[in-house]
Design a protein around this nucleic acid. Sequence first.
RNA 1: UCCUCCUUAGCUCAGUUGGUUAGAGCACAUGACUGUUAAUCAUGGGGUCCUUGGUUCAAGUCCAAGAGGGGGAGCCA
Length: 480
Amino acid sequence: MTRTKIAAILHNPTLNQQILVKAWVRTKRGNKNVNFIALNDGSTIENIQVVAESSLFSDESLKDVTTGACIAVKGTLKASQGAGQSVELEAESIEILGKADPETYPLQPKKHSLEFLREIAHLRPRSSTFSAVFRIRHQLSYAVHTFFHQKGFSYIHTPIITASDAEGAGEMFQVTTLDLNKIPKDEAGKIDFKNDFFGRQANLTVSGQLEGELFAMALGEIYTFGPTFRAENSNTARHLAEFWMIEPEMAFYELPENMALAEEFLKYLISYILENCKADLDFLAKRFEEEEKNKKQEERAEMGLLEKLEFVRSNDFVKLTYTEAIEILKDSKPNKKGQFKYPIEKWGSDLQSEHERFLVEKHFKKPVILYNYPKEIKAFYMKQNPDNTTVAAMDVLFPGIGEIIGGSQREENLEKLSHRIKEVGIEEHALWWYLDTRKFGACPHSGFGLGFERLMLFITGMSNIRDVIPFPRTPQNADF
RNA sequence: UCCUCCUUAGCUCAGUUGGUUAGAGCACAUGACUGUUAAUCAUGGGGUCCUUGGUUCAAGUCCAAGAGGGGGAGCCA
């Protein structure tokens, strides 16, 4: 007899039929005459209730049916006599597939703190919250591919190990096979990489963008979706040392088309989850609501999770230049009252979190796309505007998350790009292959990077980025 | 990396001004109970009070250093 998944049983129940369920025990309760076992197999957030009559199953035979154990139940699906569920499985035989000693199994049928669950990351997907989060994570990945596929983009696997040390996106993890106890040095006393695996210094990628641009110059519209590594000592609820990033890169797109794509993309992804993950989202929305109750009045979110997602999907994002943002901030109440830790004084300084949060959460109360930033605070490859002071950069800012997308139109003019490379002190010869795209058949093009986990935070309503990736990598933590 | 708060039973937490044998709820074990919904009720077992050092007649409580964690900031996605 083949097993039936719980999702299939509950979504399309056929009563009085014999079925086989294989799943993990969430709780068992009962009395002298009957036992109730709540079972979950991960196919859905919902449990199925197994009814084990004492006439068929002695207490002894159910001794090992404890929270966390894996069992196989053969029985008949019946309309439930109880109130909490419409159908239940009347057990005819129960086989213990794997015991879980209740004295030592750490997950209990009660609410655990996220901090505790993080310490048992190997077991936390068996909890309701994390199973919901990770089913959504799968659906969201699928939606990313679906969106780009439907638009004719090609998925490009850019390398995870790169020898390019000029990307400037952040601190890098070095990849080496050299014996760290006997590092070879040259005459000048510098590390000799000739005998290293690649014959030169190599690192884990901090971005697939530069390689992505090469393929956009050939296939037109491409995207990458892969792991990204930053060795920054960042200890926040929004940063990981290993995270997943989606980076589309499009030939012939200028900044306005780039912004429009970013907005369409985010709305598509949110819609997809709203339409395809209803049960999991409902659970997370309830959870979100309870978390909000524990917060102080002034820190509570104005909208519930579903309301917030609905709002973002159905409202236009505000598009605003850096210069306009500075004007708004200069005239804002908190700036005049001295409530900003970093007061807005002059044009040209980078915006702090508090400024972005004011614009998004207080002033506009919706997602904001800021564009045309001062060139000094942005990367070398961004398109220089005719004013000679700004670049065609854009940041998409989300409430509660901050920067969720960073992107730009790229500088396609060889002279301007090479001038900027020298200005910021990057060695030009290391980027010869990148500069070749500007030498041979250059064209206007654009792209952006979306932090996958940051979007997960927004969609699931979780508050720590470590809780939306299966095994978080952060400074001082690479367990599991 | 900086600021700040926290660390007491398997989990969540209380522990007053330093003072006898450190508590509660849940979990677990045993028993009761005719359909439960994180079942309920009774009884019971369970402690490196994060670590090290110091002050004191006396430290879970005060001081110092270290470790781990939360929140905020910086860097960014």
